[in-house]
Design a protein around this nucleic acid. Structure first.
Length: 561
RNA sequence: UGGGGCGUGGCCAAGUGGUUAAGGCACCGGAUUUUGAUUCCGGCAUUCGUAGGUUCGACUCCUACCGCCCCAGCCA
């Protein structure tokens, strides 16, 4: 990680930690990032990763990576691997502290026995539907299960037999014995264990047919690892009394403090794992690492950098208020990072052939172009120029559409970036009347010098026709057409997918230096945006990370209606 | 009158009884520019959900009201 990176700003959680340090309650801060391996990590997880690992870094403490793998039904090994990749890519390291909640299954079981022995847990035979009835509603208290007052001996026996596999799925659960009249539904004798036969757990195989619930597993896992501050999202706030209840009722010498913060919501995308899974499984995108996805794998393939994502997490802050962050914040982070680091190249996305008539047909010129306008340490490269070149169709108009236009027009002049000033002498059309070629002349006195007696304001990019290379370019736009696709009444979020979220350009020309570009190397294609070579596609394919800021497009947009 | 949270500019977000109410993004000018990029300079909340109250003094304390979010999985 770069040493000059701005440090994370403070927030209310860091203030709590400061107090706990000042009061002597703790001397070493220990956090954890506890994903469930049931999907790929997304940018909302990045907020939590940066928070947890960032705190450990800044306070010289520790942060564990722990998989919350208590529901083998939804989890798999592909996800445990992708999660580790993504956390590392983001720039964090857990040393030897990789844990699984399933590491603790035996101890969890023993703690459950302790609860039973203390009369704090019981085996319940109510089926799903019955249990819901007995739970009551938000406004009405629940009723005690008829199995609630079984003897300790009977509970012990039954629980042991549950583990031994004597009962089918759903026939028995172990429940905490707290208070069916609690106004907090999470305290109405919550389920601790359920029976799941026939699933192979990615870590424990077929060793168990009994699986603990998250609410029971999490506080114990935290305590076993000596976590001091257990940071989670707001929806677990109601669960905190149970988190504390568990640790107060078993023999464990550690009681981490749970602190809740609000999840990240980003405009024009969705963040729920259920919805992301649906986008993948129903083929709306091409996989978890589709460059349009808000997953870390997708952002990576799109060309986002770990540093930009970390910076984004710093900028959005950590609070308890509901939020929906504008895409502009993320875009600003990546532009700032890439502007400083990306080498410049030229690429013509929609080519228009230009023949420079007074340029000798047998001659090729070699030009030197700086790789970066401000950072000379990035060096320079050679570019060939011949009699025929390509420019972008958008850089030519027969007549200027308005007085601000500074690109090429018939009879007008522009500067070719790093090269000469050319003048458009004639337009060649095909049978359909479409412009297919421009005939131009160049002014030999304008290489590295301004022309005599006139001003040429426009500068356009170009690629040499003889030496340029053909490439495919994929332009990405927001995945949804609505800023809150998951909150539009009357619409399913999949109805709001942007049909133009991917545009594939197959006839682009890029300068020769780009022919062997490596994936994950970031380039700025001058006047277009930031691009990186796709890591998966065969052939020369570039993904547009994002465009440059475009005040011209804004101006055009404004002058339209 | 079920419980738990949250309300500071378009979007995030500092602020913890005495500050001209930080900062970032966005936006609007203007300068520089062989990228309509970058950079630079300037502008952008007489007011903190609303209404009362306490106080010499309130975004910060109290009361009431309004709005929004979460909870009734053998999911996490």
């Amino acid at each position: 990680m770069s040493g000059e990176e701005k440090s994370a700003p403070s927030n209310f959680i860091r203030q709590v930690i400061d107090q706990d340090l000042a009061s002597g309650r703790h001397s070493l801060i220990h956090t954890r990032f506890p994903p469930e391996p049931n999907g790929y990590l997304h940018i909302g997880h990045a907020k939590s990763i940066v928070l947890n690992f960032g705190i450990a870094q800044d306070y010289r403490g520790l942060c564990n990576l722990r998989f919350d793998d208590t529901n083998p039904h939804k989890e798999n090994i592909e996800f445990v691997q992708s999660i580790q990749n993504d956390v590392r890519w983001l720039g964090f390291d857990w040393d030897d502290r990789l844990f699984f909640a399933s590491d603790y299954f035996e101890r969890l079981y023993q703690f459950a026995i302790e609860l039973i022995e203390k009369g704090k847990a019981f085996v319940c035979e109510l089926d799903n539907e019955r249990m819901r009835e007995y739970r009551g509603t938000l406004k009405e208290p629940g009723r005690n299960s008829p199995y609630r007052d079984r003897s300790i001996a009977e509970n012990l026996d039954l629980f042991q037999r549950m583990r031994a596999g004597e009962f089918p799925d759903g026939a028995r659960v172990l429940r905490a014995r707290i208070d069916m009249a609690s106004p907090n539904i999470n305290l109405r004798d919550p389920v601790l264990y359920r029976i799941r036969h026939g699933v192979v757990h990615h870590q424990t195989g077929a060793a168990w047919c009994l699986y603990p619930m998250y609410d029971y597993t999490h506080p114990i896992s935290d305590a076993l690892e000596g976590i001091t501050h257990s940071l989670c999202t707001l929806e677990f706030e109601d669960h905190r009394p149970f988190y504390d209840w568990v640790l107060d009722n078993i023999s464990i010498g550690c009681h981490p403090r749970q602190i809740e913060f609000s999840r990240l919501n980003l405009e024009y995308t969705v963040m729920s794992k259920r919805k992301l899974t649906q986008l993948v499984s129903e083929g709306y995108v091409q996989g978890w690492d589709d460059p349009r996805m808000p997953t870390l794998a997708g952002l990576r393939r799109r060309g986002f950098t770990p540093g930009a994502i970390r910076e984004f997490c710093h900028r959005i802050g950590v609070t308890k208020s509901d939020n929906r962050v504008e895409m502009g914040v993320l875009e600003s982070c990546i532009r700032e990072d890439l502007d400083a680091r990306a080498e410049r190249r030229m690429a013509v996305l929609r080519p228009l052939r230009v023949v420079i008539e007074n340029f000798p047909s047998d001659q090729t010129l070699t030009l030197d172009l700086a790789n970066h306008p401000k950072d000379e340490t990035l060096g320079a490269r050679k570019i060939a120029m011949g009699r025929e070149i390509f420019i972008d169709q958008a850089d030519f108009a027969e007549v200027a559409p308005n007085k601000q236009w500074k690109r090429l027009v018939t009879g007008g002049e522009v500067r070719l970036r790093g090269s000469y000033v050319i003048k458009c002498e004639a337009v060649i059309r095909n049978d359909q009347g479409e412009i297919v070629e421009l005939r131009c002349s160049y002014d030999p006195a304008t290489l590295g010098a301004n022309p005599e007696g006139r001003k040429v304001k426009g500068v356009i990019h170009w690629v040499c026709a003889a030496t340029g290379v053909k490439a495919e370019v994929r332009l990405y736009d927001r995945l949804f057409t609505h800023p809150t696709p998951d909150a539009v009444s009357g619409s399913e979020f999949t109805d709001l997918i942007n049909p133009a979220s991917l545009e594939i350009l197959t006839d682009c020309r890029v300068e020769a230096a780009l022919a062997d570009a490596a994936p994950e190397v970031h380039y700025q294609f001058e006047r277009e945006g930031y691009f990186t070579r796709d890591a998966k596609a065969p052939g020369l394919v570039f993904n547009r990370t994002l465009s440059l800021r475009d005040s011209w497009a804004k101006l055009e947009q404004q002058s339209k209606p």
